[in-house]
């Protein structure tokens, strides 16, 4: 039971709320500006410029352009993104979880060597071309798996996951084994539920990584039917951006009409809102201490 707050604590809570509200506004206002810009016409944008908080004449013009007509490009890209995000996250979590679980076992012979095996790729890489050749030899190029199979484990997140698992008391496992459980049962019924906060967090990281990923999908693919939504977003965002074209680029680009800001804004909304909605759903996995359920007994 909570004990009645002292005046000092009350002051702290009040200050805390005020502070968080102010900070939230700093995060929110730019987003609102993008949202508002997506709802104005090209003409209004040409007149008012790049920072619009309240649309004068709201319109769905930009969204109609993105989704309208006979073009299935955006829908198709959504399909690819959803596929890679869901399947990719499930596979990543499985691989990462298993790896972390094994590395978290303090008494496992060869554990340091295995950790090193995970660690070295964090520092050294062979660059793009050899990686591409491996991926191509495995016939992954021009398939949707190019965005999934080569990226099953992020070594950083595996090690963070391992550290989480190491905070789970060994006594729980010992007790279960004494009760006659086998290692698989221990994994599924002791460790899995206890690591839900960590799993959902790392899962969220993977999901967002997959959702935001565009580079390999774009650079390792020639088939534009496999472009995820982020590639489309970037095509629109970066068009007409001089810093990315270098000196030669600006020499002669007769078709380089940068799209109106309204279109860019609508594209940003289209690519961010679905993934933003995920977090509140998984948040409940770590609002209450799940670990406690196990030890209370």
């Amino acid at each position: 039971m909570r004990i009645k707050a002292t005046p000092m604590e009350r002051l702290f809570y009040l200050g805390n709320y005020v502070f968080l509200i102010v900070v939230s506004l700093l995060f929110l206002i730019p987003f609102i500006s993008v949202l508002s810009t997506s709802f104005i016409s090209t003409a209004e944008w040409a007149r008012r410029g790049n920072f619009v908080l309240i649309p004068e004449a709201p319109t769905l013009e930009a969204y109609q352009f993105l989704f309208g007509g006979s073009k299935g490009t955006v829908f198709n890209a959504y399909k690819i993104t959803f596929f890679r995000t869901i399947v990719g996250t499930v596979l990543c979590l499985t691989f990462t979880g298993l790896g972390a679980y094994v590395l978290a076992r303090r008494n496992l012979p060869g554990r340091t060597f295995m950790t090193l095996l995970v660690f070295i790729p964090m520092v050294f890489s062979g660059g793009l071309i050899p990686f591409y050749l491996v991926v191509d030899r495995l016939r992954l190029t021009n398939t949707v798996w190019i965005m999934i199979t080569p990226f099953l484990v992020n070594p950083w997140w595996l090690l963070i996951m391992r550290n989480f698992l190491m905070t789970i008391p060994v006594e729980l496992e010992e007790a279960a084994l004494m009760d006659g459980a086998n290692p698989l049962t221990v994994l599924l019924r002791v460790y899995l539920p206890l690591s839900m906060p960590a799993l959902t967090t790392i899962g969220l990281f993977y999901a967002v990584w997959h959702w935001n990923g565009w580079f390999y999908a774009a650079v390792f693919n020639s088939n534009r039917d496999l472009y995820p939504i982020q590639v489309i977003l970037r095509s629109i965002l970066y068009l007409g951006d001089a810093s990315y074209r270098g000196d030669l680029g600006i020499m002669f680009e007769p078709e380089m009409m940068p799209p109106a800001q309204t279109l860019k804004a609508a594209m940003i909304i289209v690519t961010t809102v679905p993934i933003l909605l995920v977090y509140p759903f998984i948040q409940r996995y770590f609002v209450k201490g799940l670990l406690i359920g196990g030890v209370k007994g």
């Binding site: 070295i120 790729p121 050294f124 890489s125 062979g126 660059g127 071309i129 050899p130 990686f131 050749l133 491996v134 991926v135 199979t149 080569p150 990226f151 099953l152």
Partner: peptide
């Protein structure tokens, strides 16, 4: 996916 491409070093 990590060690084989390292020949690129």
């Amino acid at each position: 996916f990590k060690y084989v491409p390292m020949i690129g070093i």
